[in-house]
């Protein structure tokens, strides 16, 4: 059973401040929810081991980030090696929905991924437990506008969740894990490693072309 090795998948959660990124992570990993809002400083991560399709064990390393502007000082190293990116918005906050594109673009630039067009993203609309009256008017239409925009659009799976009541959280993370695993396998196949300074062992003698023998 050589395929039984454990895989570590790096998942990054992005989104505006207060949309519930930390709560989603806490609900998924620890089945806990706190009503108290506490801003995340920098970044923090939790891990959870899950099984995909009943036979593949993976460890999700979920990175929660600070949505607040003043904490956005994470360097490129933080984003490096990400296998999936979760874009979060709050179903009661229209601005957080409109900012999803910026979060996606920011991620792509910072992470410098090799396949920006196919990189797995997932959208999560959190806080669906709130009153209907408080939700963004014509949410579906606006969401569709954002996701269907041809260029810079977010044509990705969308989940509506409630970290408070634990609605749809497991399902969303299951899809995240599957997408991340695919990306990880793709990365493994391409063997892309930005730090391969030392793979130049061959052909070094061809460098000195000016003095090279022309016979």
């Amino acid at each position: 059973m050589s395929g039984r090795k454990k895989t570590l998948l790096k998942v990054i959660i992005l989104g505006d401040s207060g949309v519930g990124k930390t709560s989603l992570m806490q609900q998924f990993v620890n089945n806990k929810f706190s009503h108290q809002y506490k801003a995340t400083i920098g970044a923090d991560f939790l891990t959870k081991e899950i099984s995909i399709d009943g036979n593949k064990q993976v460890t999700l390393q979920i990175w929660d980030t600070a949505g607040q502007e003043r904490f956005q000082s994470l360097g490129v190293a933080f984003y490096r090696g990400a296998d999936c990116c979760v874009l979060c918005y709050d179903v009661t906050n229209e601005k957080s929905l409109n900012n999803l594109t910026s979060w996606k673009d920011e991620f792509l630039v910072q992470s410098n991924v090799s396949n920006p067009q196919d990189f797995p993203f997932i959208i999560i609309g959190n806080k669906i437990d709130v009153d209907e009256a408080k939700k963004i008017p014509s949410l579906q239409k606006k969401l569709q506008n954002i996701t269907n925009n041809q260029l810079g659009g977010l044509n990705y799976p969308v989940f509506e969740t409630s970290a408070k009541d634990g609605i749809n959280v497991e399902a969303a993370f299951e899809v995240i894990a599957k997408m991340a695993l695919q990306q990880e396998e793709l990365n493994d196949a391409n063997g892309n490693d930005v730090s391969d300074d030392y793979n130049d062992a061959i052909n070094i003698h061809l460098e000195s072309e000016s003095s090279g023998c022309a016979c």
């Binding site: 910026s102 673009d105 920011e106 630039v109 920006p116 067009q117 810079g152």
Partner: peptide, 10 residues
């Protein structure tokens, strides 16, 4: 392919 994300950043 990364031109779009960069140029769209506010």
């Amino acid at each position: 392919m990364l031109l779009g994300p960069l140029l769209r950043l506010p």
